[in-house]
Design a protein around this nucleic acid. Structure first.
Lengths: 264, 264
DNA sequence: GCTTGAACCTGACGCGACGGAAGGTCCTAG
DNA sequence: CTAGGACCTTCCGTCGCGTCAGGTTCAAGC
């Protein structure tokens, strides 16, 4: 008198509401799965009500399990309809999913780190001016758009190697260089004047300290130069000098470097 | 002869294509920002082409910067249109964002851990049967639906405290209990028989080992019992006994416990 | 058989941040 | 004058459902 749940003829049938309550899904979700063909009720009553068989319910449990792993409904349909529950396909899918999630986690970590850093600076009361803060944000945005993630990481490593006081000192030296060069721009000092040539040499050396050597370093330097050329406007706004004068300065720098190459 | 970039009259205008190239956004995105009112070009040519002013471009840079922090366009519009760039509002928004992302990161970690665990089991070759693997997945899904995340963590901690060999031993003891009790079910042993009462006592003690004490532990136990009652079908499928007999066993257990309470 | 309330049905819109295509207008250089 | 590139608006699609709206069916009580 053993009731083997046969291929599909025998056994209980469940209404959509019963299935929903038992599985913790909503009726609407089941409707949706039916619509997209992921899980259709094997039978309908004469009036069109869905009747789910035991097989259907088992399939739903698999769907739900795979959903909690973050798979898309399409991926779930593919693997469930794959030839005889192919374990290899499943393995590949889960591995790919893990890969994607790990990549996502890395980006998330970077984001939270940046947010924490920003909030610290905000809390440090060292930034009382809303406009200055927004401008800092803009600069960060320019910075991020100009370098690849690898280059940014390279720059961060180099800064860490140099240490905070060296970075601070470099900032001060750079400030002096800007002041002096701005005076030369205003005075119309020719681009092949040895004095400005020396100043630009110090400028470039200063920049080099923050780049590593080798082909990667060169590419990073080129990206930095492009950033200055294309975004001197925005970068200038966060500096204590007028943006227009900074643009002129960048153009002047380029002329001095060219004169140096020709003179050599 | 200082050209102060006036309120809005003077200065360059940029076409949408120029702005897109300079900012790294797509023309379509700028159209979208215009549509939703986040960033509209201050002017139009007679024929309807957008002309962006310097102010517009500056706003775009802020939008882009805030987007890289993961804020929604609506949130960005709110802070940018807030009264005079309110720093407090900004702080609150960024703090909330950080909070949300941290919560997201936690869920992501749990997910990747689970995926890694599953893949290890798959690689361990200890699971050659696709159907068995799918059934394991279903059980996980039932398990996760039955307990709150806190309860799951509580159970995991308790298992770790007991150590793997104690868990293994408990599994074996439980298996024996099931076999003996199934025989009593089949033999129709009355629910108040001292032998089954003793067996059920051991069963409950076995379960108690995995729950912590106090109100939390009680709630976890209740959730476990509900899981057994409502999902003996699915749980039974992954066990070496027929589901129907497991269902009978669960009902029998309940009768024995009631008889015990009455007899006392 | 009738009524009533719960359960069920289909169809459609909405969300978020755009991508992409269709079909037309405008601008500029040759 | 013409070609082609830049620009315009409008609309559909994405993903996984939630949430109506408006109608039909079911099960129970009278």
């Amino acid at each position: 008198m053993v009731t083997v749940t046969g291929r599909d003829g025998a056994g209980r049938r469940w209404s959509i509401g019963e299935v929903a309550r038992a599985s913790g899904m909503t009726v609407r979700a089941l409707h949706h799965y039916d619509e997209i063909g992921l899980l259709r009720a094997s039978e309908r009553t004469a009036s069109g009500h869905r009747r789910y068989t035991g097989r259907d319910v088992r399939r739903l449990y698999r769907v739900r399990a795979l959903r909690t792993l973050g798979l898309s409904l399409e991926e779930i349909a593919d693997v469930l309809d794959g030839s005889a529950d192919d374990l290899e396909a499943m393995r590949g899918l889960l591995a790919a999913q893990l890969h994607g999630l790990e990549a996502h986690a890395v980006r998330l970590r970077q984001l939270t780190d940046r947010l924490r850093g920003l909030l610290e600076r905000l809390d440090g009361a060292s930034m009382p001016d809303p406009d200055q803060f927004m401008t800092t944000l803009e600069m960060i945005s320019v910075f991020e758009a100009s370098f690849t993630p690898e280059q940014r990481e390279q720059l961060a490593r180099r800064r860490a190697e140099l240490g905070p006081e060296a970075v601070e000192a470099a900032g001060l030296e750079w400030k002096e260089l800007v002041e002096e060069l701005l005076r030369h721009v205003q005075d119309g000092t020719p681009a092949d004047d040895p004095r400005v040539r020396e100043l630009v040499g110090r400028w470039d050396a200063l920049g080099n300290r923050f780049h590593s050597t080798g082909a990667d370093g060169e590419r990073t330097k080129a990206a930095a130069r492009r950033m200055w050329e294309e975004h001197s406007e925005e970068l200038g706004r966060s500096l204590p000098w007028p943006a227009e004068r900074m643009r002129e300065l960048v153009r002047y720098l380029e002329r001095v470097r060219q004169a140096g190459r020709r003179g050599h």
